[in-house]
Amino acid sequence: MFVYYSRIYEKYRLPIVHIAVFNYVMIKDEPDTFTITFPFKDILSFHFFTLELKKRNWRDYIKQPNLVALALLGKTGYDTKEKVQMKFEFLRTFLKLELDPARQKLVHAIFEKYHKLRTEEEIHLYKNLKQFPNDEVNQIRELMTSWEKKGYNKGIEKGIEKGKIEEKKSNLSKN
């Protein structure tokens, strides 16, 4: 942290608040200081804020219109029984932010990287969309469908490329 701080301070010469974000799978206690000492003198004591995501409850962050908090939601602490509910709430908050497509893609990709649902959980998610207002359900379905379409189209493209390579190999082996 100190090295990053010193480089940024050197460039801008402005006060900076540094925050270290830890996203470990297991809960750990992280220091919030960096010190350099010699037996004869303390040379440096650098303090910074720490944010250990697993120690934070996801409910504290879900209603905040903060893209970083929303993207990292999947790394916060939650009970496994709340996993599907957390994704519901993520989607609702996500849609309310009305992001441009690039930001939408980035935030969703980070959340999905950290918060993967098993097949049965995905089925449970789809079945329970009824408890939300119709306009939200339609937006969520539309959102999911567009991501699924992108993935499907990417798969088709890769399949076509692979088919062309196989065809070339087949033609070479015939000659």
Rank of each mutant, 00 (worst) to 15 (best):
I19G: 01
P65A: 10
E52K: 07
L172Q: 10
I123A: 14
I8F: 01
K174G: 03
K55Q: 09
I19F: 02
F34R: 03
I140L: 09
F48P: 01
K96I: 11
L143V: 05
I160M: 08
T76Q: 11
Y126K: 07
K28Y: 13
H108D: 15
I36R: 08
T50G: 01
F88A: 08
I160A: 05
G151P: 04
E148V: 06
H18P: 10
Y152V: 04
Y4D: 10
R92E: 11
K162F: 14
L91A: 11
E52A: 06
P101G: 03
Q85W: 02
Q139W: 01
E52R: 10
M144D: 13
I165K: 12
D32H: 14
L67T: 01
E136K: 11
F22A: 02
F46K: 06
K11F: 08
A109D: 15
M144K: 08
E136C: 09
P39M: 05
L172H: 08
N171Y: 08
L67M: 11
V137L: 09
L95R: 04
G163M: 10
K41F: 14
P31L: 10
N57Y: 15
E120F: 07
H115P: 10
K169A: 11
R103G: 08
N57L: 02
E89L: 15
D79C: 11
E122G: 01
I16L: 14
E98P: 03
K169M: 12
T145S: 07
I27S: 14
F40L: 07
L117W: 04
F111P: 05
E89R: 05
I62D: 00
F48D: 03
W58Y: 11
N171C: 12
L95Q: 08
Q104P: 04
R118Y: 05
L51T: 04
G74E: 02
F40T: 04
W147P: 00
M86S: 02
F94R: 01
L53D: 06
R103V: 09
